[in-house]
């Protein structure tokens, strides 16, 4: 933790005026940033300053600001979501930065996540992967009593470990191959742990993996970067499960 209560930061922010613009870094200096401020609140200050000078603010995605909606997608000093482990950018606070530090801010960079403007990217590819099979086919009203099928605590807890994915895409941004394997694997692993997922198990894994490839995400080469940056700590074992499920589904 910084000992300073008020710090000065030098920002290098990616500015790109639309998908077809080339884009560039722009430098800004912010003074008197309190270390209790969140990273996004620091960007709010930047934008307020820009608008007071009648300039165009920096666009960035954000919503819940409590680490659960998965909207934020900032690469901070080269690391998706920044330096604090298991923390989405919106939960990162300025106390993790030094006085006079230079901070580089970029969007996720991946072929499957085209840039819309500045730090905002298009992540609809994730929805299409889910659409391919990330569900249990059951119509509303069809369900048996919730306790009709017991699920051991161990399996339910393990399913939950995968189900907590917030769909932010940091795994893709950190991967040298821009692979979406952790994201896709997390849903496959969640449903593979539960009896409800069993009937569509084979169909699901094949459809989701194929969609992932179709979207232009790369393959997994076991770098493990995704697990390191995942803000909710999803284990790379999700990818192992996805592969096992995939191989099983072929036979």
């Amino acid at each position: 933790m910084s000992t300073h209560d008020l710090i000065t930061v030098h920002l290098k922010v990616w500015r790109q005026n639309g998908p077809n613009d080339r884009g560039h870094f722009e430098d800004y200096t912010l003074k008197d940033i309190t270390t209790h401020m969140s990273f996004l609140e620091m960007l709010d200050v930047l934008n307020e300053n820009l608008m007071k000078e009648k300039k165009t603010p920096v666009e960035f995605d954000h919503d819940c600001r409590e680490g659960i909606c998965g909207s934020c997608n900032l690469v901070i000093n080269g690391i998706p979501h920044g330096p604090q482990m298991r923390t989405a950018a919106c939960q990162l606070h300025m106390r993790h930065f030094k006085d006079n530090e230079t901070i580089t801010i970029e969007p996720w960079r991946a072929k499957a996540f085209p840039i819309i403007k500045d730090l905002v990217v298009d992540r609809n590819a994730f929805d299409r992967i889910m659409e391919a099979g990330g569900y249990v086919t059951m119509a509303t009203g069809n369900a048996p009593d919730a306790n009709a099928v017991p699920i051991s605590k161990v399996e339910a807890d393990s399913a939950m470990d995968y189900a907590v994915c917030i769909g932010c895409g940091a795994c893709v941004a950190s991967c040298p191959n821009s692979s979406a394997s952790l994201f896709t694997g997390a849903k496959i692993a969640q449903l593979a742990k539960l009896p409800q997922g069993a009937p569509e198990r084979k169909k699901r894994v094949i459809a989701m993996v194929e969609q992932m490839e179709k979207e232009g995400f790369g393959d997994c080469s076991n770098y493990g970067e995704c697990e390191a940056v995942c803000p909710v700590g999803i284990s790379i074992s999700a990818i192992a499960t996805m592969r096992t499920e995939y191989v099983k589904a072929l036979f």
Binding site: V136, M138, G141, A143, A146, N147, K153, A156, A163
Partner: peptide, 22 residues
């Protein structure tokens, strides 16, 4: 009650005890 049934059938991993019940 139907909501809980519906969500479990979708694969929502609610907390359970060691016997497998909610």
């Amino acid at each position: 009650n139907s909501i809980i049934d519906q969500c479990v059938a979708q694969g929502v991993p609610f907390a359970r005890d060691y016997g497998g019940m909610l």
